[in-house]
Design a protein around this nucleic acid. Structure first.
Length: 871
RNA sequence: GCGGACGUGGCGAAAUCGGUAUACGCACAGCACUUAAAAUGCUGCGAUUCUUGGAUCAUGCGGGUUCAAGUCCCGCCGUCCGCACCA
C-alpha cells in the first residue's frame, strides 16, 4: 500500500482555514461554563516574530487548547503593544510614518502567528495605538488625576545636546547619545508621575497572596519595593555666622540608630536644599556640585569616580552629647531621592562610610562588638563590620544588643524635644519611586492636559476625549514631532476659553501594557464599558511571559488594577493569578576571523567525538563558540519563517515543548528539530497504515491479554500526560508520549484483522494519542483524527477520561534491597499481607545466598514500594 | 556586597512524598532493507572490572542524619540570574 506522505505546509494551512471558518476559537462572554483566561504577554510589532515569541505562544496555546478540551470557556486573545521608540527611529531612517510602519508590521506578524496555528480569538484583537484604545487610557489618567493619583514634579532627563532631544535610559550608551554620540547632559524637567508609592505597602503585602507566582519574581518585586524600618533623627546645626538662614538642623534617616555613638560625620546630597543654599555663596562648592552632576548616575561611573565629598564650614551637635560636634560634608554618594537626602556616617560599621572616612582622615570608632570578638581585637582599618552585636563605647547603650539599642535610642529621642518637636521619629522607607510617565516622544498616548497662562494646568474634560495623535507630522529632524505641530498644540483653555497649549509629552508605553488584559474582555464603547463582565473574567488565570518583565510591567499592572479600584471601576486587586516565566531560546554561536557567522552559512561535521564547522561558501574553518541568546549581533538567529517553510508549525511547536522544562533556556539545534520532525512522520505513518483497518471500529477498553496491555498503557499515559499538562511539565508529557508510541507501534505494525478486541483497544489507544498530542501538535492531530474517520474537529472535542481500574495493576514489582543495596526484586500481589510478603522475600535466591542461614536483623517493608533487609 | 536559582552520562534531561538513579529524546555504533545512498526498522550505549552473570564505583566536593539520600541537615567549590553608594 502506498503511504500518503504528510505535507505539513498544505495540511496546516487547511486546518487553519477550517478553524477560522468555523470560528472555533471565538469565545462568548455569555457561555455558562467555567471561565479560564490564558494570556501571553503581547508583542511589540517590530516586524517579524522571533523564536522567543514562538516559544511563549506555543506554551500558551498548549494550555489554551488543553483547558478548552477540559471543558472550560477559554479566553485566549492577542493584541499589539504598538507605541514606542522603534517606530520613530524607522520614521527617521526610512522616511515612513510611524503609524504606517506599525500597522504594516502588525499585519505581517499577525500572518506569521496565524501560520503557527495558535488558537487566538482574533475577533478581540487590538493595538494600543488604536484611538479607541488610548482614548480610555486618557480617561483613566483623568480619573486618576482627580483621585490624586497623578502628580507633576521635576525630575532628571537625559538630554542630547546635538539632537536636542530627550533620550530614554536605553538610548544612552556609555554616557553618550545612541545617534549623535554626544555626551548626555542631565536636565531638570517637569514631568507627570503616577503615585505608585501610595501603594508601596499594599503592593509589597499583596505579594504574599500571589502564591502561584514564581518565588523568584516575588523576591525581585520585594527587593524593588525595598521596605526598610528606621528612624529619622534631627541633628541640630551649630549656630554661627556661617549658618544659612532658615536652616537650623539636618534631618537624617537611618536604619541603624544603634550605631549612633559611632557617628563621625554628616553627609548631604548635592541636591539637598542646604547644599544649594551653601553653594550660592561658595564657588568651590558650586564647582564641586557641578562636577558631581556631570557624571551620570550609572553605577559604572560611580565606581570609577569613587566617594567624593566637600567639607562645609558647618557642624552639627550629637543628639546625645551637646559638646560633641560633627562635620558636615556634601557628598556624591548620598541620594536625594532616598530617605531625607542626608546620612550620618558611621565608618566602623558601614563600608561606604569607612571608604569615605579613610579618604578624608576621619576616625572610625567601633561601637558594635561582633559575637565572639573581644574589645581589644576590634580594630577597624579598611573593612567595616556591618552586622549586629553588643554595644560598646556607647555610654548608656553599652552592653545592649543592637536590637535593644535601636529601641533605647528611639525611645530617648522620641521624648527629647527640639524646638517643640520630638528629635526623632520612627519611619518606614521604601526604595520604590513614583512612576514617571512623561516621554518626550511623538509615538505614544497623548497626556490629556492643557496649559493655560491664566488658569495653569488644566486636565482635558472627559467629554473632549480622545486627544487624538495628529497624523500630519514631519520626521525630518529628531526630537518630539508634537512639539513642532503648532496647530495641534494650539487649543482653547477648557476653563477660561482663552488660547492655551496642549501637553506635548506622551505616556510611557508601560502605561499601555498595564491594563491591556482588560481590553480583550468586552467591547469598549465611548459612553459605556461593561466592567461587570470584565470583573467576571478577572483575574487572568494563567499569564505567561519572559522574566525580563518580572519587575516593571508586572508591578505597574498590579498598581493599575489598584488604581482602577480607587477610581471605582473594579473590585479586584491582583490582575494575574498564576504567572509563568518561560526561559529563553538560545543557540550556538559561530565565528571566523572575519566575524560572526549565521547557522545557515555553515556545515557541521563530526570526527572522533569532536564537532567541526566549515563555511559553506569557502570551506573555511569556523570556530564553534558559546551558546547565547539568539541575537542579531551574534548572528545566531534562526528565523521562524525558515523553520515553518521546511518543517511546518507542528515541528516547531513540538520541539519547543520537548526536552527542556519550559522555565529553563532551550538550546535550538538542527538535530533537535529533525528529531521532532521525525516523530510527526512516525505518528502519521502509524495512523495512515492502519486507518482503513481501524476506521469505523468502536474504541473500547480491553481488560486482559495483549489487548489489555495496550489499554493499560493508554490509560496510564493519559493520566500521566493530563497531570503533566496541568503542571505545565510539557517536557515530561512529551517523554511519556514517545514512550507510549514505542509501546503501541510494534502492535500496530502487525495488527490481526480478526482480533476485534485488539482492534478496539488500539482504536482507543490512537484516539487517546491524538487527543494528547492535540494541544501541542494541533494540525497533525486533526489530520490523524480525520484519517481515522473522525467527523468532529479535535479542537472541539473533549479531553478523554481514563479508567481508574486500569491504572493500578493487581501485581506489584518490589525491589529487594539488602543493607540498602538492590539485590533483586519480587513480583507479588498488591494486597499481599506482611507475613506472606516477608516469607516470599526470604525465599528469594539472592536473599538466601546472602543470609547464609542466619536470620535478618530487621526487614523493612514500604507498602507497594520497596523491601530492605538488614543483616 | 545583598538576594535568588542551580550543579545528574558525550548532550538536553527524568526520578512527583526520603524508597529500583540515568526514563524519554539527541548524538554515536552495529545490524536489516537497498546496486548504493537517504529514509525506515531492530539492537547496543554511565565508569571500572572479572568468568556468560556478577562485583565495585558513580548525581560538583567534604562531612552528618537514616534500614535507605540526587532528594533532608552542616561546611566548602563552581555556574547562572536579579539588584546594587538605598543610609
Amino acid at each position: 500500500m502506498a503511504i500518503k506522505d504528510y505535507n505539513a505546509r498544505v495540511t496546516e494551512k487547511k486546518w487553519q482555514s477550517i478553524w477560522s471558518e468555523n470560528a472555533v476559537f471565538q469565545t462568548r462572554n455569555d457561555d455558562p461554563r467555567k471561565k479560564y483566561y490564558v494570556l501571553e504577554m503581547f508583542p511589540y510589532p517590530s516586524g517579524r516574530i522571533h523564536m522567543g515569541h514562538v516559544r511563549c505562544y506555543t506554551i500558551g496555546d498548549a494550555i489554551a487548547r488543553f483547558k478548552r478540551a477540559c471543558g472550560f470557556n477559554v479566553l485566549h486573545p492577542m493584541g499589539w503593544d504598538a507605541f514606542g521608540i522603534p517606530a520613530e527611529n524607522a520614521a527617521l531612517q526610512n522616511k515612513v510614518h510611524p503609524k504606517e510602519w506599525t500597522y504594516r508590521n502588525i499585519a505581517s506578524m499577525r500572518e506569521q502567528l496565524q501560520s503557527m496555528g495558535f488558537s487566538f480569538d482574533w475577533s478581540r484583537e487590538f493595538a494600543t495605538c488604536d484611538v479607541d484604545y488610548y482614548h480610555f487610557q486618557q480617561a483613566f489618567f483623568l480619573d486618576m488625576y482627580h483621585k490624586g493619583l497623578v502628580l507633576q514634579k521635576t525630575s532628571k532627563v537625559n538630554w542630547d545636546p546635538v539632537d536636542k532631544t530627550v533620550l530614554a535610559n536605553e538610548q544612552v550608551i556609555d554616557g553618550r547619545g545612541w545617534r549623535s554620540g554626544a555626551p548626555i547632559e542631565q536636565h531638570e524637567r517637569t514631568q507627570w508621575f503616577f503615585r505608585i508609592t501610595d501603594y508601596s505597602e499594599e503592593l509589597l503585602e499583596g505579594l504574599n497572596r500571589l502564591d502561584q507566582w514564581p518565588e523568584k519574581v516575588r523576591t525581585m518585586q520585594r527587593n524593588w519595593i525595598g521596605k526598610s524600618q528606621g528612624l529619622t533623627i534631627r541633628w541640630q546645626l551649630v549656630v554661627s555666622y556661617k549658618t544659612p538662614k532658615h536652616f537650623t538642623e539636618i534631618e537624617v534617616y537611618t536604619t541603624r540608630p544603634d550605631t549612633i555613638f559611632g557617628a563621625a560625620f554628616i553627609a548631604i546630597a548635592v541636591d539637598h536644599p542646604l547644599a544649594r543654599q551653601l553653594a550660592g555663596r561658595d564657588n568651590a562648592l558650586q564647582t564641586f556640585i557641578e562636577e558631581c552632576k556631570q557624571s551620570d548616575t550609572s553605577t559604572v561611573t560611580f565606581e570609577k569616580a569613587g566617594k567624593k565629598g566637600f567639607k562645609t564650614e558647618l557642624n552639627v551637635l550629637h543628639p546625645f552629647d551637646s559638646s560633641w560636634e560633627l562635620p558636615v560634608y556634601v557628598a556624591n554618594f548620598v541620594l536625594m531621592e532616598y530617605g531625607t537626602g542626608a546620612v550620618f556616617g558611621c565608618p566602623a560599621h558601614d563600608q561606604r562610610d569607612l571608604d569615605f572616612a579613610n579618604h578624608y582622615n576621619l576616625s572610625a570608632r567601633p561601637v558594635i562588638l561582633p559575637q565572639g570578638v573581644s574589645p581589644p581585637d576590634l580594630i577597624v582599618t579598611d573593612v567595616a563590620y556591618p552586622g549586629e552585636g553588643i554595644l560598646i563605647n556607647s555610654h548608656f547603650l553599652d552592653g545592649l544588643t543592637s536590637e535593644a539599642a535601636f529601641e533605647e535610642v528611639a525611645c530617648h529621642l522620641e521624648k527629647k524635644m527640639l524646638d517643640g518637636k520630638p528629635q526623632a521619629a520612627r519611619c518606614i522607607q521604601f526604595r520604590l519611586r513614583d512612576w514617571g510617565i512623561s516621554r518626550q516622544r511623538y509615538w505614544g498616548c497623548p497626556i490629556p492636559v492643557v496649559y493655560c497662562d491664566h488658569c495653569g494646568v488644566i486636565p482635558v474634560p472627559k467629554a473632549d476625549l480622545p486627544v487624538i495623535l495628529p497624523d500630519d507630522v514631519s520626521f525630518d529632524q529628531p526630537g518630539n514631532a508634537l512639539n513642532r505641530h503648532e496647530e495641534w498644540k494650539a487649543v482653547q483653555c477648557p476653563h477660561c476659553g482663552k488660547a492655551a497649549s496642549r501637553e506635548t509629552d506622551t505616556m510611557d508605553t508601560f502605561v499601555d501594557s498595564s491594563w491591556y488584559y482588560l481590553r480583550f474582555i468586552t467591547q469598549w464603547k465611548k459612553e459605556h464599558t461593561d466592567f461587570v463582565t470584565i470583573e467576571n473574567w478577572l483575574p487572568v488565570d494563567q499569564y505567561i511571559g519572559g522574566v525580563e518583565h518580572a519587575i516593571l510591567h508586572l508591578l505597574y499592572s498590579r498598581f493599575f488594577t489598584r488604581a482602577l479600584n480607587a477610581t471605582g471601576y473594579l473590585r479586584i486587586e491582583e490582575p494575574f493569578k498564576k504567572l509563568f516565566t518561560q526561559g529563553m531560546v538560545v543557540h550556538e554561536t559561530y565565528r571566523t576571523h572575519h566575524g560572526w557567522v549565521a547557522p545557515s552559512e555553515i556545515c557541521i561535521t563530526e570526527k572522533d567525538g569532536h564537532r567541526f564547522a566549515t563555511l559553506l561558501s569557502t570551506g573555511e574553518s569556523v570556530e564553534i563558540g558559546s551558546i547565547e541568546k539568539m541575537s542579531k549581533s551574534k548572528r545566531n538567529v534562526v528565523e521562524p519563517d525558515d523553520i515553518l517553510a521546511v518543517y511546518g508549525a507542528d515541528t516547531a511547536r513540538w520541539f519547543m515543548l520537548s526536552d527542556s522544562p519550559p522555565e529553563r533556556d532551550i538550546v535550538w539545534s538542527a538535530s533537535g528539530v529533525e528529531g521532532a520532525h521525525r516523530f510527526i512522520h512516525r505518528i502519521w505513518r502509524l495512523v495512515i497504515n492502519v486507518a482503513d483497518t481501524l476506521r469505523g471500529i468502536t474504541p473500547r477498553v480491553a481488560y486482559n491479554d495483549a489487548a489489555g496491555e495496550i489499554s493499560k498503557a493508554a490509560h496510564r499515559t493519559l493520566k500521566a500526560v493530563t497531570d503533566d499538562l496541568e503542571k505545565l511539565a510539557f517536557n515530561r508529557a512529551v517523554a511519556r508520549l514517545y514512550d507510549f508510541v514505542n509501546v503501541v507501534s510494534p502492535v500496530l505494525q502487525s495488527i490481526d484483522e480478526d482480533d476485534e478486541t485488539m482492534k478496539s483497544a488500539l482504536r482507543q489507544a490512537l484516539d487517546f494519542l491524538i487527543s494528547m498530542i492535540a494541544p501541542m501538535m494541533p494540525h497533525l492531530a486533526e489530520e490523524c483524527h480525520a484519517a481515522l474517520g473522525g467527523k468532529e474537529l479535535i479542537a472541539n472535542s473533549s479531553w478523554p477520561a481514563f479508567d481508574k481500574t486500569l491504572i493500578i495493576d493487581d501485581n506489584v514489582t518490589m525491589p529487594v534491597q539488602i543493607n540498602g543495596k538492590k539485590r533483586g526484586h519480587l513480583i507479588i500481589a498488591r494486597n499481599a499481607d506482611q507475613i506472606t510478603l516477608e516469607k516470599a522475600v526470604l525465599s528469594l535466591d539472592c536473599v538466601v545466598a546472602r543470609l547464609n542461614g542466619n536470620s535478618p536483623k530487621k526487614i523493612i517493608v514500604v507498602s507497594q514500594r520497596i523491601v530492605n533487609i538488614v543483616i
